Computed example of a mutant assay.
Amino acid sequence: MWKETVSVTPPYHFDRVLKRLSLDPLNAVDLTERSVKVPVRSGAGELCIVTVRAAEGTASEPVFLVSGETNRQEMMERIREIFQWGKSLQAVHDHFSKTNLSALFEEHAGTPLVLEYSVYNCLMKCIIHQQLNLSFAFTLTERFVHAFGEQKDGVWCYPQPETVAALDYQDLRELQFSMRKAEYAIDTSRLIADGTLNLSKLPFLSDEDIMKKLITIRGIGPWTVQNVLMFGLGRPNLFPLADIGLQKAVKRRFGLAEKPSKEMMLDVSREWEPYLSYASLYLWRSIESSSP
């Protein structure tokens, strides 16, 4: 067992991180202990469980205790990336203090853009969540992971692409996937498994090149790519105009009588660049229930 104490540049509000992670039933979050168990695969494919726990630190002096069984250096590198510990939020908050979202960023100060545990997880989650209400989307994703994923120490991990690539469409239909959604998930996994789509190369490409590459795949549209860019790769400047939750949040934030048009969304968001992803995150938080 290895343990490492990590101090992070403030502001960083871990309780808000945990609260948002707890919305997904697959995440092993303990709000009382202020901890989360993260399933991470090593480069060799070994499933490792890493525990991230708040130490005695606060949002203004964040300190974490990270522990695991194996692959210390590799796991620490991935944990730092997932929780975005190498990126200071101060510049983001300074930027938004001069915008029409200043009050929102004051209310949710210190909330980082935490990533999904792998790019593949993020891609599968986005495909499953397409055009579903959030409650059933989480239910369907949970069924998918419980049926074909891997469990270790009580923590669930998404299946590997090769596992999903070997499935028949009917395997997912039995979980209540639509036929198209089953095809999208399995066919995309087959492209990854046979090397046609190499996810490990995406971090080295621009947002535009990733959009061009992924948008050609059946079942992957702009909304999915934008979410992969944000929550799979941590890109800072994405604002999914077609996202219903964002439209709802903008309507509420600016007191609109009707759902905002694309033109209105573009107009109101201009001053948020180059941190559109953070604006998206904080707007989503504004409509999530019981946000601390």
Rank of each mutant, 00 (worst) to 15 (best):
S22G: 01
A59S: 08
K201P: 02
S88N: 06
P260W: 15
V228F: 08
N121F: 08
R270N: 05
L101W: 10
S88K: 02
D168Y: 05
P161Q: 01
D194R: 14
G57N: 01
G219C: 14
A137K: 06
A257D: 04
E107W: 10
L205Q: 10
L197K: 02
E107K: 14
D15N: 04
S35Q: 02
I186L: 12
L191I: 14
V8D: 05
S206F: 05
F64Q: 09
H129V: 09
D15F: 03
D194P: 04
Q73M: 09
C122I: 03
G234M: 02
L276T: 08
V228S: 05
C48W: 01
L65S: 09
V250L: 12
S67C: 11
K181C: 12
K19V: 04
D207K: 12
R180G: 05
E183M: 11
W223V: 11
R34I: 00
W223F: 12
T99A: 06
T51R: 05
I49S: 01
L241A: 13
K201Q: 11
E263K: 07
E4G: 05
W223I: 12
S102W: 15
H108F: 15
V155R: 00
E81H: 04
E208F: 14
C157D: 08
V268T: 10
P292S: 11
V52S: 00
E107N: 09
F254C: 13
K37S: 14
F136T: 13
E183K: 08
S60L: 08
G154V: 00
S97F: 04
T111D: 06
V36L: 00
T58G: 11
K201D: 10
C126H: 05
G245Q: 13
T224N: 15
I127Q: 07
E46D: 11
E273L: 09
L167S: 04
G221T: 12
K125E: 09
T196I: 13
Y275H: 10
Y12V: 04
M75C: 03
E183L: 06
R41Q: 02
I79S: 00
Q130S: 06
T99Q: 09
L21E: 08
K248M: 07
A166F: 01
L26I: 05
F96W: 11
V36R: 00
S261R: 14
K19A: 08
S206P: 06
V155Y: 01
D153Y: 02
S135Y: 15
E77S: 14
K152A: 01
G149D: 02
A54Y: 03
I217H: 07
T216D: 07
P260T: 15
Q176L: 12
L229M: 07
V50T: 04
F138V: 07
A44L: 13
I127W: 03
A166E: 02
E174R: 06
A193Y: 03
L115T: 03
F204T: 14
S289D: 14
A103D: 13
G57C: 01
H93P: 03
L31C: 05
F14A: 05
L115V: 02
E46F: 10
F204D: 15
